[in-house]
Simulated assay, not measured.
Amino acid sequence: MDWSFVVALVALAVGAIAQRTVGMGFGLVVTPTMVLAVGPLEAVLVVNVFGVVACAMIIGRVWRDIDWRGLAWLVVPAIALTIPGILLARAADADVLKIAVGVLALVGVAVSAGFTRSERSFDGPGLRVPTGALVGVLNSSVGLGAPVIGMFAILSRWEHRVFAATMQPFWILLSLSTVVSRQLVAPGGAPPWQWWMWLLAVAPILVGVVAGDRIAARIDQAVARRAVIVFSLLSGIAVLVTGIVGLATA
């Protein structure tokens, strides 16, 4: 068996654990590995397809905690900006765009984290709509919208249990939108996997979700909030480094 595929399976399991416990992190963990295993264009399709699979496995476990009203304010603008994000990626230099997004993400998360010391929270449609729109653009253009969602969770002081639950339908809907939109605007990009490899890749996701269930039952609010900050920072670093490497090797 191709060792790159084995590494991809491990990344899918770890990504599923992160997605179940933190509510984000699947793309952060899986995307860099998939880029190395199958290529950058193919990685977008793989991450979005299996992101839907992971969230679909999780959603039944957290259904009663989903904030459907809050979800609507985020996901509708995110889906609406999916195609513009794809067009932006085609028009702009991808590596320069990644560097700009990475820098902004790191600054934004750092500033947002500073608000954790304050008793004040920021929330409402006026923040959710632009947050969702920005996530839609970034997810479809550079493949990482997690830092923006992390910033929103920090600023709004969204209860982690509700945040983690609401992120499952959010990523399902946004990932499906991204896959469909990419096939319409820029078709292709599937890795040369056999049919059985696609089926086998579901197994580590299931293992990760089950393991994540046990971790989620033991994690407290403070630890979960710190995990959101860490994952958001790592997402920003990942996209920044990817852009720098891309420019350096161009």
Rank of each mutant, 00 (worst) to 15 (best):
A16Q: 04
L155F: 01
W193C: 13
F163A: 08
V207G: 06
L206G: 13
F5C: 04
I205M: 05
V96P: 05
I86D: 01
M167G: 15
A94L: 12
A16H: 02
T178L: 03
R64D: 09
L87Q: 08
L155P: 14
A43I: 12
R64Q: 13
S112G: 09
G60E: 02
V101E: 07
I154P: 03
G189W: 00
F163K: 06
R117L: 08
R117N: 02
V6G: 13
W193R: 13
V29S: 07
G25M: 07
L28T: 08
A72P: 06
V239R: 08
F163S: 04
W68Q: 04
V135L: 02
L138P: 00
L176Q: 02
F122N: 09
V76I: 14
R218M: 08
V76L: 12
V53H: 01
L41V: 15
P169Y: 02
G124P: 10
V135N: 02
V230P: 00
P125I: 10
I244P: 06
V209C: 04
F50N: 06
G108W: 02
S141D: 06
V44I: 10
T166D: 00
I205N: 03
R61H: 11
A56Q: 06
H160P: 08
F152V: 13
P204H: 06
G51L: 00
G132P: 05
G70C: 04
M1F: 09
A100L: 15
R61E: 12
G188H: 04
T166L: 05
P192T: 10
P84C: 10
G124C: 09
H160Q: 15
S118Y: 01
V29H: 02
G208A: 07
T82C: 00
A91S: 14
G27V: 05
S4K: 13
T33G: 09
W198E: 11
I59K: 05
L234F: 05
D95Y: 14
I79R: 07
L41Y: 05
A186Q: 04
G132R: 08
I149N: 11
A146W: 03
G27E: 00
L234D: 06
L104F: 14
G108A: 09
W158P: 03
D93F: 11
I172L: 03
L127S: 11
A105T: 09
E42A: 15
A105M: 05
F152C: 07
V22K: 03
V239D: 00
A110W: 11
I17M: 00
F115R: 12
V53T: 12
L247N: 15
L233F: 06
M167P: 01
V109I: 11
R120P: 02
P147A: 08
Q194K: 13
F26I: 01
A54Y: 01
A248L: 15
A54P: 03
G15T: 06
T21Q: 05
G114W: 03
W193H: 13
V49L: 12
V22L: 00
L106K: 03
V6R: 08
